[in-house]
Nucleic acid binder design. Sequence first.
DNA 1: GGAGGTCATTGTGACCGGT
DNA 2: ACCGGTCACAATGACCTCC
Lengths: 279, 279
Amino acid sequence: MNQTCKVCGEPAAGFHFGAFTCEGCKSFFGRSYNSTTSVSDCKNNGECVINKKNRTACKACRLRKCYLVGMSKSGSRYGRRSNWFKIHCLLQEQQQQQQATINSMQQNMRTSQKTPPLPPQHLNDYKTTASPAVSSPESHNSDSSIEISDARRIPMFPGLIPPSFLPPAGLLNNNPGVEAFNKRVFLDAVLQSQRSPTPEEVVTRVPINSPHQESPIDLSMKTLSERGSSPAQSDRSTSVATERGNGSEADEESDCDSEKELKQLNMLRPTPLDLTTKV
Amino acid sequence: MNQTCKVCGEPAAGFHFGAFTCEGCKSFFGRSYNSTTSVSDCKNNGECVINKKNRTACKACRLRKCYLVGMSKSGSRYGRRSNWFKIHCLLQEQQQQQQATINSMQQNMRTSQKTPPLPPQHLNDYKTTASPAVSSPESHNSDSSIEISDARRIPMFPGLIPPSFLPPAGLLNNNPGVEAFNKRVFLDAVLQSQRSPTPEEVVTRVPINSPHQESPIDLSMKTLSERGSSPAQSDRSTSVATERGNGSEADEESDCDSEKELKQLNMLRPTPLDLTTKV
DNA sequence: GGAGGTCATTGTGACCGGT
DNA sequence: ACCGGTCACAATGACCTCC
Ligand SMILES: [Zn+2]
Ligand SMILES: [Zn+2]
Ligand SMILES: [Zn+2]
Ligand SMILES: [Zn+2]
C-alpha cells in the first residue's frame, strides 16, 4: 500500500498495532510493551522529534509517539484487521490533524488580531465529543459505522459521497456485495488522501499562513521502495491508488514534525484503540 | 440473524460446517481438519473453557468444542444449506441442551432437594449423553424432516404449530413461496428460542419423565402431507420475530462456563451431521 | 554481549471469488 | 448464502550489524 511509518516516516511495512509503521517501529513497540525495564526518561524534556535517523536516540519519545499515532497493544489480536478498523483509525487521525491545524490557526488569528475563528463543527474530535453518531471501535461490531461528515472530506470523493456510501445505517445488511466493494475503495481513498492530498484539498483544509512549515496532513514521501519481501501482491488495491499524483518531494530530513507536534506529544491519545474488536 | 458463535461466543458470521460460528472458528476448523500435524495435547487436561479471548490458547480444546457443537467436515459442500437443514441442526442441539438441563436438574433435585434455578441456556453444554434420541442425518435421505413434537416445543409457537407447518412431502414443490416464507419464520423462531428461552418453554418442555432419553427425532418422517393452515400464524410470528431487539448483548463474559462444562468437554458428540444431505 | 533491525516461519482471521 | 483460498497481521525466533 506504500504508506509511511507514522512514527518515524520510513516506508511502512504494514498496519501494526493500530497504525502504519515500519518494521523497526513495529518491533520496537512490540518489545517495549512487555519490557521489564521501563523506558528511561527523555533527556530533552520529552520534546524529541522522531524521524528515521534519530528514532533510536530517545526511546521515551519514540514510545510516546507510538501511542500518539494510535498504537496500542491492549488485547492485541491475531489475524487481519478489518478494513473498517483501518478506516476508522485513519479518519480519527485525520481529524486530529485537522483539529491541530485549526488550533494553530486560531492561535495565529488571536495573536495577530484577525477575524474571530470560525467554529468548525465538523472538526470535532472523535473522542472529545461524545456524539452518538461516532462510535468508538470498541462499541461496534463487524459492520458498523463511521460518521458521514468525515467521509465527505475524503478528497477522492469531493463531497460526492452519498450518505449511503458509508457503512453505518442499516444499508449494509441489504446489499453486502456493494458494501464490500465500497469498503475497499473507500479505504483506498482514505489512504491515498493521506499520502497525496489534492491541491484543492490543501487550499481548503490548510489555508496557508501557518507560521512554520508543515502541513500536518501531508505525509508525502513517495519512495516506493519495493522490498523483496513484499512483492506486488497487492494488485487489487494498487489499481485505485496508481495514479497518485505524487506530492511535494519530502526531503528525507524535513520530517513532518515541528514544534507544534512537540507540544502534542505531551498529551497522549486518551483512548487507545482496542485491537481486539472486530470492527 | 445475530447469532453467536457456538464455539467461542463471538458474534457469528454464519452457519459453517454445521454450526453457527465466527469467521475465526470456521477457518480454524477448516484448517484443523486436513492438518497433517495433529493438534498438540492440552496442557490443562483438556478442560479449557473456550471463549473469544482465550480461544487461541489451546487448540486441542478449541477443536474439541468444534466437534462438540456439531461441526463436521465430512462431505461439506458448496452452496447454501436450506433452512430446514439449519432447523434440524438447531433442534438437535436444542434437544441435547434440554437433555443436559434435565439431567442437571435431576441431579440438583437429588442433591439439594429444592427447586434449582434454571440454568442459563448457554451454561449447559450439549452432549452429555450419547443419546440415540438424536439420529444422524446420514440415515435419511434428501427429504428428511423434524418430528412434530419437537417443533411444538418452540416457544415462539407454543403448541400451535400445525403439523402442516413442517416441510416434508412433495407439497413444497407446489408452492415454494409460501413454504420458503414459513421456513424462514420458523428458523427465526428456533434461533430466537436458543438465544432467549421463555420460562414457559422450560416448564412445558420439561415434563418429560424419561430419565435419560427422550423423544427421538423421527427422521424417517413422513409426511404430514396436509398443509396450508399455517399462514395466518406466520404473520403474527414474523412481527414478533422481527422486532427481536437482540438486546441480549450482555453476555460478553458470561460465556465462560462453569466447571460443569469442563467435565462435559471430555465427551465428544457421537454423530456429527452429514452436511452433504440436501435436507 | 546488548540493542536495534531484518527476515523467515507459523498461526490466525477478515475478505473475496466461486459455486 | 457457504466453502475454500488469499493475504494482512501477531508472535516468535534466528541472524545480522553496530557500539
Ligand atoms: Zn518507523
Ligand atoms: Zn526524548
Ligand atoms: Zn468462534
Ligand atoms: Zn486445553
